[in-house]
Every structure is written in C-alpha cells, then in structure tokens.
Amino acid sequence: MLSVQGVSVGYGDAPAVLREISVMVRPGRLLALTGSSGAGKTTLLNAMAGLLRPQQGTVTVDGQPLRDRDHAVEQRIVLIPQDNGLAPILTAAENLQVALVADGVTPPEALRQTAATLDQLGLSDQADQLVEELSGGQQQRTAVARGLALRGGVLLADEVTSELDAGNRQRVLDLLRDEARRGTAVVFATHDPEVAAACEAELHLVEGRAEIVRD
C-alpha cells in the first residue's frame, strides 16, 4: 500500500507547492486526483513516484519510506507521465518491448505481451510506426499500453485521456478499472469531471491543500 502522510512538496528554495497532504492509495481502487491547472496534481504524482523528495512528511510503500525513483521502480510503482515519456525514434511496439525486457521479461514473452496490450488499446495497426509519426492521442494510448504491460502494484497516470475521443477515453478507463480489479492501486490525475466520477474515490487539490471528496 502507498501512503502519503503530512507531505509538503516544493521545488528548490521556493515555497511548497503542496502542504500537508495525506492520502492512502489502496489496492484494488481507482483514486481520482483532481484540481485546476497548476493545482499540483503532477507534483503529487511525482512525489508518489519517487521523483520528488518531500520537504516534510513521508511517502511509504508497505511501510517502507520511499527513497527515490529507483526504489519506487523496485517497489513496482509505475508512472505514466503527462508528456508520455516515450522514445520518439522507436516504434510503438519497441517502446513496450524495451521496457518489458528491462523489467526482466524474456524477449519472446515481451513480443507476445506487447502485441496483446497494443491490441487492447486499439493500436495493432500502429505497432510498427515510429512514435514521432503517431498522433497525440495514439501516443497517449501507447504510453498507457506500456504502463499496463509493466503490471505494477501501483499505477500512477497523469492526464492520460486528455487527447482522447470519448470512445478511447472509455477504453482506457475500462482497462484501468480492470487493473484495479487485479489488485493494483491506481491514481488517475485528471481535470475531466466525467473521468473523476468514474473512479471510486477522489482527492481534490486546491491552493496547495487536499480535500477528500469521496473515499
């Protein structure tokens, strides 16, 4: 279980962007992280992913303080970043395969899992296209496919439906819900009220503080 307790986060010597945030990210549930642009959604996800060290408070995984991103990866915390984090000079399939092999999957199994996951996202026809040739929505779905293929215990998704049409948005939501049913703790940062309403719980950020809307 991922736990955020009394966390304040900032950048450099600037005042904290988020102050005294506490939330439990429970396995088997979708937690919507909402708030206006600039409210700190990405900042909080980065702290949960080990990319930002809190100025105060703690982020723990199964009771262990989260040290850094390498430790987060060891603890099976998968981040799908807002900028998708894909290698533009690789194909959609290669982006998944490289991540899977680096995660210890054998090359033949990585090929199989890549094909299956891209198919789930409706991307089979784009598997051999370079990422830089894909549309923004296709890149988002490729990033989601990579995140799902890695099978984390915690999945952090940052605005991963912002460029999708209604059909593909629902497809991604359904797949994230399936991940939660598998026992994954899913945190979904979004500005879309319909997406937030589809999640079991909601944490709303406003003026650097957090309000639990649904739990």
Rank of each mutant, 00 (worst) to 15 (best):
E20M: 06
V187S: 05
L30G: 03
T60C: 15
V61G: 06
N46D: 14
R67I: 08
V59T: 03
Q170G: 04
G122P: 08
V187D: 07
L121G: 03
L205R: 12
N46M: 15
P27L: 12
L155W: 01
E194W: 02
G40V: 09
G10C: 09
E159A: 06
L79A: 08
V4P: 10
V73I: 15
V101A: 08
A127S: 15
Q97A: 11
Q82C: 03
G28Q: 12
P81E: 05
E109R: 13
R169S: 12
G167K: 00
G152C: 12
A110W: 10
Q55L: 15
L205M: 11
A201H: 07
G122L: 02
P107C: 09
H191Y: 05
Q82W: 04
G6Q: 12
D178W: 03
R112D: 14
T184V: 15
V172H: 02
V4D: 07
Q129W: 09
V160Q: 01
L66I: 06
I80G: 00
H71Q: 04
D62I: 02
S124R: 11
Q129Y: 09
N95D: 09
L173P: 09
V61R: 13
R171M: 01
G147K: 03
A14D: 13
R19Y: 00
D215Y: 03
F188I: 08
K41P: 05
P81H: 07
G63H: 02
G28D: 15
E202T: 10
V160I: 13
M48V: 13
G40T: 12
L66S: 06
R151T: 08
D192C: 01
P108F: 11
A99K: 02
A185P: 10
L123I: 01
L111M: 14
V101S: 06
L51N: 12
R67G: 03
G153S: 11
E202V: 06
Q82P: 02
P54H: 04
E94V: 03
R214A: 13
L79Q: 11
A72F: 04
T161P: 04
L150V: 03
V101M: 10
S37K: 01
L203N: 08
Q138L: 01
D125A: 15
V131C: 01
R67T: 06
D178V: 05
R169K: 14
L2V: 06
P65F: 06
A149R: 07
L66K: 02
L130Y: 10
F188Q: 07
S36W: 12
Q139G: 07
P107M: 13
D125L: 08
D62Y: 03
F188D: 01
D215C: 05
D125P: 05
P193C: 09
P107W: 10
V25A: 03
G12M: 06
V4S: 08
S36Q: 15
V4I: 15
A157E: 00
Q82S: 05
E163L: 04
L90Y: 14
G40D: 14
A39R: 05
